[in-house]
Amino acid sequence: MPSPTRKTKKIGTSFRAAAAGVVAACLSPALTGCAGLDTTAPSAVRTQPAATAQAARLGAVDCRRAKCIALTFDAGPSEHSARLLDILRDKQVPATFFLLGERHIEKYPQLVRRMADEGHEVASHTWDHRILTELEPDEIREELRRTDEEIQRLTGRRPTLMRPPQGRTDDTVHEICRELGLAEVLWTVTAKDYTTEDPALIRRRVLDRADRDGIILLHDLYAGTVPAVPGIVDGLKERGYVFVTVPQLLAPGTAEPGEVYR
């Protein structure tokens, strides 16, 4: 992988500052996604029937019986993503990647293809991380549409999931996601890896807060995150967790466009 350019480093610093600035406003004391939203838990979705083709695509893991957890990564691909994919492949762990378009999908198209080819779920984190609740409806559509089209071009499959930047969403975002065929996915655990480059601390924060049906939020663009992943995976496997993608976590039900899941 190429080393980070000066521009990439500047973007990472700005992203870190923006993420840190929203913690008080957007994260509850339990370190979950934005509070006050009407969200649906994975266990509620699993009561829904699913089409045979959908069930076959999601594989044999049955999270109604297994102790499942979903590992998710925001704001890639980055210069660290190839190493992350090597780790996930070696440990046989699927993940869900919420990708950014500008300077990420654009810069690393081969990694987007690899994510899909290796069985990970490829989803949207918008084109350039603008806060959707601050945009006009047509701007929201463009942030989502452009990312979806590029992912579809690279992987052959249009995303069905998105994660709003900083977890900020509202009724307008819900309605546009419904129109575009996208469900919104928040999280139950965050290591706040935008505040530290210490892999041991990132690992400890995840292991301390992980629970069944959890959705773990990490960012593979930060230097400390990918080195923390082996310890996170090993620690949770020792506790009996089975790693799944977000769609597998919801199966045999499916995420509905315009709904919010956590």
Rank of each mutant, 00 (worst) to 15 (best):
C63D: 09
P165G: 10
A35K: 12
D171Y: 05
T172V: 14
T172H: 02
L132S: 06
G59A: 02
C177G: 06
E175F: 09
K107M: 07
E197V: 13
Q166N: 13
L144T: 02
R178Q: 14
R168W: 02
E256A: 11
T169K: 04
G253H: 00
T160D: 05
D86L: 04
G167P: 00
L99H: 01
G12I: 09
T147H: 06
H120N: 12
Y261H: 07
T245Y: 10
P230I: 09
A56M: 13
L58C: 07
G119E: 13
V260M: 01
I232M: 05
V23T: 12
V246T: 01
I232D: 02
W187D: 00
P164I: 04
A116P: 02
A210M: 01
R204D: 14
M1P: 14
L37S: 12
D148Q: 15
S3T: 13
R157W: 06
L37T: 12
P252V: 12
F243K: 00
F243R: 03
P159G: 10
T133M: 08
D86P: 02
L201M: 10
A70G: 04
F73L: 11
S124N: 14
P230Q: 09
A123W: 03
A95N: 00
A228T: 12
E136F: 05
T254Y: 03
K7M: 11
D213M: 06
R83K: 15
L99M: 12
I69K: 03
L84Y: 03
G12H: 08
A116M: 04
A70D: 08
L31D: 02
L37Q: 15
A183H: 06
P247I: 01
D198Q: 13
E238A: 14
G119Y: 10
S78D: 04
E149I: 05
V23A: 10
L144G: 06
G224V: 03
Q152T: 09
Y261E: 10
Q92H: 13
A123P: 08
L186F: 05
E102D: 14
P159K: 05
R157Q: 14
Q54W: 15
R205G: 08
S28A: 14
P252E: 13
T245L: 04
V173S: 02
E118D: 15
A200S: 12
L236T: 11
L207Q: 02
L250D: 00
D128Q: 15
G224L: 03
R205H: 07
D38I: 03
E256F: 05
E143K: 01
